[in-house]
């Protein structure tokens, strides 16, 4: 957690990242940027999913509808925060010539999306009956 707060300061300080190590081949930086953008698209899709649950499942009870929408929105926010953090860590690792950071976030996100999807199927079925 403390490490995360220190990283947050680096998000806003390009000079600090650029002081370390050597500038990598621009193609590696661009590949890192595309990975960041792919994660941003995932985050935007999750946020859009939050809106969509609210709009396209109007017959659900309020609690379920809001709960599912909040789960998707929270996943979107986490995903976008993680996107910039991981991008910055990768950029720094490349400058220092270290291994790229390992992450359990993709597995975590996969599990969360699966749980929300199963919950949505159950809730829609139960919601139609009730």
């Amino acid at each position: 957690m403390i490490e995360f707060v220190q990283n947050v300061r680096l998000w806003f300080a390009p000079e600090q990242v650029r002081e370390e190590g050597d500038t990598p081949d621009y193609r590696f930086s661009l590949a890192n940027e595309r990975t960041f953008l792919a994660w941003m698209r995932t985050a935007l899709a999750l946020i859009g999913g939050g809106f969509a649950v609210d709009q396209f499942l109007p017959d659900l009870r309020w609690g379920w509808r809001v709960g599912l929408a909040l789960a998707l929105l929270a996943a979107g926010v986490l995903c976008s925060l993680r996107a910039v953090n991981h991008w910055m860590l990768c950029e720094r690792a490349m400058r220092r010539g270290e291994d790229l950071p390992a992450s359990r976030f993709p597995a975590l996100l996969g599990v969360v999306v699966a749980v929300v999807a199963v919950a949505m199927v159950v809730v829609v079925l139960v919601g139609w009956e009730g």
């Binding site: 680096l10 806003f12 300080a13 390009p14 500038t23 621009y26 976008s80």
Partner: peptide, 13 residues
């Protein structure tokens, strides 16, 4: 091109 600036990435987020 130069790499993406951290401020730019943070603004998008």
């Amino acid at each position: 091109p130069a790499p993406l600036a951290p401020r730019h990435a943070t603004s998008v987020v």
